[in-house]
Simulated assay, not measured.
Amino acid sequence: MQPASWGQSQVVDASHLLVFANQTQVDATDVDNYITNVSTTRNIPVEALTGYADYMKGAVGNMPDEVKPIWTAKQTYIALSNLLNAAAELKIDVTPMEGFIPAQYNEILGLDKLHLNAALVAAVGYRHADDETQHYVKVRKSNEDLFLTL
């Protein structure tokens, strides 16, 4: 995986490497599967979710095919944010990465055969005590540069 990750060492140094993959195809069947999961998880009759299901099917059905994988890729950031929050609570380090070649990940992991695409990677583990970069001051944009007040 390291060559497909621009040679970054955390890909092989981390105790775990998570690949967040998005669906490349989405249709009404995916909505039905989601609605069934909601029904089962929340103990709600499927019939009570019909309006929501119809709305979602319309939204997904009206989405151009080239936009669907972009939308599903953006959904992976929601899962990443949950990982980051949970890991921070447990004092576990996570390095989110977009610095990799998705097509190579897809080929190596066989994701393309599953109609999936590697969207994000996260190296998970504990930083080494000798890692000097852990003491660097974080570099962030100022609030004035980051936010636009309207």
Rank of each mutant, 00 (worst) to 15 (best):
Leu90Thr: 01
Ser15Arg: 14
Gly110Pro: 03
Lys113Ile: 00
Asn143Gly: 10
Ser39Asn: 03
Met63Ala: 14
Leu148Trp: 08
His115Ser: 14
Tyr126Val: 09
Val46Pro: 00
Val26Met: 08
Pro96Ser: 07
Tyr105Ala: 02
Lys74Val: 01
Leu146Glu: 09
Leu120Ile: 15
Gly125Arg: 02
Thr24Gln: 10
Gly99Asp: 06
Asn117Cys: 10
Gln104Gly: 02
Glu144Pro: 00
Asp13Arg: 10
Ala87Leu: 02
Asn62Ala: 12
Leu18Tyr: 07
Met56Trp: 01
His16Ala: 05
Glu107Ile: 10
Asn33Cys: 08
Leu114Thr: 07
Asp13Ile: 00
Asn117Met: 05
Leu90His: 05
Asn43Thr: 10
Phe100Pro: 03
Val31Leu: 02
Tyr77Ile: 09
Gly125Ile: 10
Asp54Cys: 05
Thr50Phe: 04
Tyr105Glu: 01
Tyr105Leu: 09
Asn37Leu: 13
Ala119Lys: 05
Val31Thr: 07
His128Val: 07
Ser9His: 12
Met63Phe: 06
Val31Ile: 15
Asn33Ala: 14
Asn33Glu: 10
Gln75Leu: 13
Ser15Glu: 15
Asp27Ala: 06
Leu80Ala: 03
Asp27Cys: 05
Met63Gln: 07
Glu144Tyr: 08
Ser81Val: 02
Thr40Lys: 11
Asp27Lys: 04
Pro64Cys: 09
Thr133Phe: 11
Ala53Arg: 14
Asn62Thr: 06
Arg127Ala: 06
Asp13Trp: 07
His16Glu: 08
Leu148Lys: 11
Leu49Asp: 01
Glu107Tyr: 03
Thr24Ser: 05
Leu49Asn: 06
Tyr52Trp: 09
Ser5Ala: 15
Asn43Val: 11
Ile108Phe: 10
Glu47Asp: 12
Leu116Asn: 07
Asp30Glu: 08
Asp131Ala: 13
Ser81Lys: 03
Ile44Val: 12
Asn33Ser: 11
Gln104Ser: 12
Ser15Gly: 15
Gln104Leu: 15
Ser5Trp: 04
Ala14Thr: 10
Ser39Val: 04
Val67Gln: 13
Ile44Trp: 09
Met1Arg: 02
Asn117Arg: 12
Gln8Thr: 13
Thr133Trp: 06
Glu89Tyr: 04
Leu17Phe: 11
Gln104Phe: 11
Thr41Phe: 13
Leu17Val: 14
Asn82Val: 03
Val60Cys: 05
His128Asp: 15
Asp65Thr: 13
Lys91Arg: 13
Ala79Met: 11
His16Ser: 08
Tyr105Pro: 02
Gly61Glu: 07
Ala88Gly: 01
Ala122Gly: 05
Ala4Gly: 02
Asp130Pro: 00
Asn143Pro: 02
Tyr34Val: 10
Lys91Ala: 00
